[in-house]
Design a protein around this nucleic acid. Structure first.
Lengths: 154, 154
DNA sequence: AGAAATTTGTCCGTATGTATC
DNA sequence: AGATACATACGGACAAATTTC
């Protein structure tokens, strides 16, 4: 097999498969995913392809990776339907901190924040977007060496 | 030469170097960067490494890539010093729209927005971050095929 | 405490497919 | 159509962080 990528590229197919396993609970939140080598064996692709799929999931905040340790599924991302509030659409969701927010809040990359997004329209046209972030205070934390990530409950 | 990467990985060193060239004006805003092959030759690294450096710059919105065309430096990111306003630090800057904001505003990826960020502290600890975005109304646009990107002024 | 094994991170070289000019 | 450039994929190698013994 040279390198045919008709339709969807392989790394995307794999990413979608893993995403479904996480969302369906086949891979519980907070637990480690199979290792890269295991996925290489399962999907019969090269390690680079697996890593590309992982990067895609990481970008979406669905998983987080720690060097020498593994990649685990992050906490549930709760996304609510937008509600109307004074002419603006307001929507709230839990998100993992990106690099910038992690630095500002001085928290770990991937730690949970609550994002409130408000979208303002004028004549149907979006003219302003406001996003506020606050710490998500719960026992839901990114697993660390101090606790057992396997048994951590979201 | 096996694969020594003391300290910083090479792709990051290259990304920093390119970033400096852009910020110092060696690579003017709006102009195309050297091609991948040129950078491969200059830095004596593989294409994948160059592409990784490019991806890093792209993620930061410093450059934008068009398929079959090349990679060019995006508009100036004006970043002002934070000012204090009622117990919060407020800072404004121009940023290129990421995928989400581009979708919400219905504008092109990389088009300019004005971001106002407000950071609130309690006892020195950051407790909330608010970001508002509005359209940046000016002639500064991301270059398109219709105009000549080379001569585009920010 | 320390060595070995495991796992992810980075890098290389190469090849081929696909889109644009 | 031809040239150029980006996207995907492979296999191998060594580095670095973590866990296990």
């Amino acid at each position: 097999m040279p390198t045919p990528h008709y339709g969807q590229p392989r790394y995307r197919v794999i990413a979608d498969e893993l995403r479904q396993r996480i969302e369906s609970g086949t891979i519980p939140r907070g637990t480690l995913l199979p290792t890269e080598s295991a996925l290489v064996a399962e999907f019969r692709v090269s390690r680079g392809t697996i890593r590309q799929a992982m990067a895609a999931l990481r970008k979406d905040g669905l998983v987080a990776t720690e060097h020498g340790r593994g990649t685990y599924a992050t906490a549930t991302l709760c996304e609510c339907n937008p509600i109307r509030h004074g002419g603006a659409e307001v929507r709230q969701r839990k998100i993992p901190a990106d690099a910038h927010l992690a630095a500002v809040f001085d928290i770990k990359l991937g730690a949970l924040l609550v994002e409130t997004e408000s979208v303002t329209r004028e004549n149907g046209r979006v003219v302003a977007v406001a996003q506020t972030y606050r710490l998500y205070l719960d026992r839901a934390q990114v697993p660390s060496r101090a606790t057992e990530p396997q048994n951590w409950i979201e």
